[in-house]
Design a binder for these strands. Structure first.
Lengths: 215, 215
DNA sequence: TGTACATCAGTGAACGCGCGTTCACTGATGTAC
DNA sequence: TGTACATCAGTGAACGCGCGTTCACTGATGTAC
């Protein structure tokens, strides 16, 4: 990332091993959930001793935080790619769904059950608002309809959020609605709560998306 | 519950201790998340030795399953109470929100990140559909509007779900939408994803609810 | 090009911990005659 | 009402395990002259 030209072989190797550790970590999380992540287990799978990993990650929490950061980063990148080929909410919605289905436990790493004590470092919340900015941009492009609702007045009154963003309250509202509605469908789908109900989750997702475009 | 009159003192005592164990379990989950639940820790807090709890619960997983069952049961009961004082979606919505806010980790026990291997026993899925039945009842009372959408045709075609329930596809759709939209707002709110955004989650919740009543 | 030194990856032993769970046992509570 | 027996709650020791993490050390890789 920084000073790409001056990478020594050792640096390359470091990055490669770090990446391999993360890959095993993701596998382990996908298989047994984030709470089952174990440095020793990862080391064993890589044919190394446990303490070796401390050359690469300061602690178990450090590794998890990196995985969370990577997850946010990955979604932000996908949104960026989607926004480049036409800025509309539909494109972002399908980018989100594809991203979520590709690795459900990664989705839950970000949007799942919070660990009561945990607070994400600042740079991660930065990426989170980067993601919201894509939604805001796409929402601003649509025309506002009708008078501002009570909630939109509330939004206008205390918008600590998106401080610099020029979006009007109706766009803020639309972005929020977009986020929560799609999360509602996606998270229940990924958690298996639609199992046995017979219908096609993709169609439901699209129906919700259509409802968003209308208003 | 069963044969209430014939309870011996020992049975009473058993139930009391079981209840106390669960209470400590709930506290522990509220404080550190469900993955941190430990039988030994609970025993210590109750001034008992660890193995003593095996008189009351067959295993740690058994205790967790009971807590999940209790959570479903509790929500179903609240829905029942709400439905008695007027069957409308708004009443159910606020019952849901109150129930969720009363104990966020209990909400996540049901609707949060799934543990990849876990499958709930049949009686629990039974309570889950009992809960959905309340939504369906309330949804059926509202008139259908406009022609059936593509998704509603899909619902009609493969409704393994709610087999005996007489709800038309439009009502099924409405119940699902109700569920996922409110879950979308609630789960992100409880997970703290609205923190620092300044707006009032309750107003946002009500705005989503209003959107549901309209259509 | 060769040697001396510094850097750094990885090991193995160890620490302390808490976990779930089993088991043989004690002691109190309830039951039957 | 009193005694003999059965039931059952709870204990303490123990098993085996895996965890995160620290530390002193070995050996390989890179760097400087």
């Amino acid at each position: 990332m920084a000073e790409t030209g001056t990478k020594t072989p050792r640096e390359r190797y470091r990055e490669q091993v770090r990446a391999e550790v993360k890959e095993h970590a993701r596998e382990q999380i996908a298989t047994a959930g984030a709470s089952a992540l174990s440095l020793n287990a990862i080391a064993k799978r890589m044919g190394m001793s446990g303490p070796a990993l401390y050359r690469y990650f300061a602690s178990r929490d450090d590794l998890i935080t990196e995985l969370i950061r990577d997850a946010y980063r990955s979604l932000a990148d996908d949104f960026h790619a989607a926004a480049e080929s036409g800025t509309d909410l539909s494109g972002l919605a399908h980018a989100l769904r594809d991203w979520a289905l590709a690795d459900p436990q990664r989705y839950f790493l970000i949007y799942g059950t919070p660990v009561p004590g945990y607070h994400a470092p600042d740079d991660i919340t930065g990426i989170a608002s980067e993601i919201m900015a894509f939604l805001l941009d796409a929402s601003t492009e649509l025309p506002a309809d009708g008078p501002a609702s009570a909630f939109e007045l509330d939004l206008q009154a205390h918008r600590h959020w998106a401080g610099a963003h020029p979006a009007p309250p109706a766009a803020l509202h639309r972005a929020l609605t977009f986020w929560t509605r799609l999360h509602g469908v996606l998270s229940l789908e990924l958690a298996g709560h639609f199992n046995g109900m017979g219908f096609d989750p993709a169609m439901f997702f699209d129906a919700e998306l259509a409802g968003l475009a209308e208003r």
